[in-house]
Write a protein that binds this DNA or RNA. Structure first.
Length: 166
DNA sequence: GCCAACGTTGGC
DNA sequence: GCCAACGTTGGC
């Protein structure tokens, strides 16, 4: 039996630009980095179980002035164990994790396009069509979350990109 | 299994 | 710096 083509999937990831900005990703080797350090089970499940190579990623700057979407990226690898969980010197070392049964996973993400217009949180909130977007719901703190295909299209358009730019 | 205390996130 | 919201921890 053959599987039918997958529907396109989209995600949003958060990063504090003081820590790792979209420009940092853009200038990284192959414009790619391992998205390590995620230590939330719901976010872990998205990384480990749902993300696929080629999925679209909105790169969101949190803790920034202003916060908002800075660029788009793509999932560039299958998920694999986050090596920092095993490193006692790493900030996100997790002594509960075992190499034979890792707790935490990551994917590689690769920058695709910088948004011609940075899309501030304020602007996102003002867009009625995005009212249900997950990142805009009060109290949500996930650093990795799904984005609806329609929302992806609206965000790209607001940011000055077209669908074919991805 | 409950729930209070605590730590973290992240906008403002 | 403040604080609301949330996840985790640990006593019971």
């Amino acid at each position: 039996m053959r599987s039918s083509p997958r529907k396109a999937q989209y995600w949003l990831v958060k990063s504090e630009p003081d820590c790792f900005s979209f420009d940092d990703l853009w200038t990284a080797p192959r414009r790619t980095t391992g998205w390590d350090g995620v230590r939330n089970y719901q976010a872990r499940n998205f990384l480990r179980d749902a993300m696929r190579v080629g999925d679209g990623v909105l790169y969101y700057h949190s803790g920034a002035e202003p916060p908002g979407v800075a660029g788009i990226a793509r999932v560039a690898s299958a998920s694999y164990p986050d090596p920092t969980q095993f490193d006692p010197a790493a900030e996100h070392f997790d002594p509960k994790s075992r190499r034979e049964m890792p707790l935490w996973f990551q994917v590689d993400i690769q920058a695709v396009r910088k948004l011609p217009r940075f899309l501030s949180l304020r602007t996102l909130k003002s867009e009625k069509a995005l009212a249900r977007m997950r990142v805009l719901q009060r109290g949500q703190r996930l650093s990795v979350m799904p984005v609806e295909p329609a929302e992806w299209g609206i965000v790209l358009a607001l940011g000055g990109l077209e669908a074919r730019d991805f």
